[in-house]
């Protein structure tokens, strides 16, 4: 190999590597690549010009040229990575935003808190073996009262201020979800385990704690061995699922014509742990609903033998549960449907 060729290659190498080191950004890199390794680049032209050399010099010059090509390509490759990374960094820097700006809001609404509570209760009770069923909102007095041991012309009926529907017979807006007790039992053989959520209606003046339309959830279990201790266990489980693992249930003697014994049940206040605070009005307890053992007359009324079967029933106020859990202090908010209220339930449950 002629020394001049060798010299030329050495000179090209030195210059190329020096230029590459001088290429400080991606565009400069691109130019370098074009200058040396591109189709019309110096090295490419050199290699293409090998044919013009004398035959005996060609192999040596070719080996040297290809070796230099590999070297420059490798140098370009590593240099290119660095330049590309730097370029990207620069790009990203220019693309920075104020990450504390609010997100672009998707158009998402919210389910009503009452629906959310009903679905949650339905799920809790499904896990306890209770099926969710629904009943009519317009009901006969037969189911709303008579079969529940609330006879006509008995003062017990006054407990439910009733809205009557202008239809033949005594047709009412159901005053509670309890009529479904009788409807379910009439249609099923024991064992029975159901919960019945839904709207109920009372002829009642509205204030912060009274609504003429609200929601209840009725529970009913009937079998050969159902006891009041089972009732307490199920309600305690409910209270713990809704209000936290350490909650306790308290029974207080109360009167509902369709249960005997009858109680109302309360959960110890989660805010103060039962010591008494503003939320529980210093009592340490929050009333959840009414419950008891299904009255023998109710069982007999649907053809169940009260000597064989026992059952428990309970009723919860859906709005009340939500109020207890979220601190809403005016029941009218639920049918008020103010978006400023509803929006706050986007993340509830």
């Amino acid at each position: 190999m002629a020394t001049s060729v060798q010299h030329d290659l050495e000179e090209l190498r030195t210059r190329a590597l020096a230029d590459l080191a001088d290429a400080v950004d991606a565009p400069a890199g691109e130019i370098w690549e074009k200058t040396y390794l591109g189709p019309k680049g110096e090295l490419t032209l050199f290699l293409r010009g090998l044919g013009a050399l004398p035959a005996d010099e060609r192999p040596t010059a070719g080996r040297a040229g290809n070796a230099l090509k590999r070297e420059l390509e490798a140098a370009w490759d590593s240099r290119h990575r660095i330049l590309a990374a730097a370029d990207l960094d620069q790009h990203l820097a220019a693309d920075a935003v104020d990450v504390t700006l609010p997100g672009r809001p998707p158009t998402i609404g919210a389910a009503h808190p009452v629906s959310q509570m009903i679905d949650e209760l339905s799920e809790i009770f499904a896990l306890l073996g209770f099926q969710t069923v629904f009943g009519p909102e317009v009901e006969t007095a037969h189911y709303n009262f008579d079969l529940l041991n609330i006879p006509a012309d008995h003062p017990a009926r006054d407990v439910w201020d009733t809205i009557h529907v202008d239809l033949p017979g005594e047709i009412v807006m159901r005053t509670h979800t309890s009529p479904m007790q009788a409807r379910v039992m009439e249609q099923t053989e024991p064992p029975v385990r159901v919960v019945v959520p839904g709207r109920v209606y009372r002829y009642e003046a509205q204030d912060a704690s009274h609504e003429w339309m609200f929601h209840q959830l009725e529970g009913l279990a009937v079998d050969r061995t159902i006891t009041m201790a089972d009732l307490k266990g199920v309600l305690a489980e409910l209270a713990r699922q809704l209000f936290g693992p350490n909650r306790r249930i308290r029974f207080r003697c109360d009167f509902f014509p369709f249960v005997e014994p009858g109680v109302d049940f309360a959960v110890d206040c989660a805010i103060c742990g039962g010591k008494g605070c503003r939320v529980c009005k210093q009592t340490g307890w929050l009333e959840m609903g009414g419950a008891g053992m299904v009255h023998p007359k109710v069982l007999a009324g649907v053809g169940y033998d009260p000597a064989v079967y026992t059952g428990f029933a309970f009723g919860l106020g859906i709005e009340r549960m939500t109020m207890m859990r979220t601190g809403v202090d005016d029941v009218r908010a639920f049918a008020g449907n103010d978006l400023r209220f509803l929006r706050q339930f986007a993340g509830f449950a």
Partner: peptide, 18 residues
């Protein structure tokens, strides 16, 4: 009633249908 224990119903569980 505070003397009542807390138990869960025993016996056959009817199928829970949605």
């Amino acid at each position: 009633y505070e003397t009542l224990p807390e138990t869960l119903p025993t016996g056959e569980t009817p199928p829970v249908r949605r």
